[in-house]
């Protein structure tokens, strides 16, 4: 397992945590905070998948 794979796993874990925080904020009716955490989660998830994606195309 390479360092980038570990980073990808950490990003996915972080994304899951951000999603959870977003859902908690949504339950508290704190919509701005919820949107912030959900967007952070989406970006972290996308970054994690891009890190481990094989292939020559960018």
């Amino acid at each position: 397992m390479q360092l980038l794979d570990l980073l990808a796993a950490a990003l996915v874990l972080g994304a899951a945590a951000a999603f959870t925080f977003g859902a908690l904020a949504l339950a508290r009716a704190n919509d701005v905070e919820a949107i912030y955490f959900l967007v952070v989660g989406v970006v972290a998830l996308r970054a994690g998948v891009q890190l481990v994606r094989p292939g020559a195309n960018a």
Partner: peptide, 9 residues
């Protein structure tokens, strides 16, 4: 989304 990401990895 998380499940899809872990499967992709």
């Amino acid at each position: 989304a998380v499940l899809g990401a872990t499967t992709s990895i």
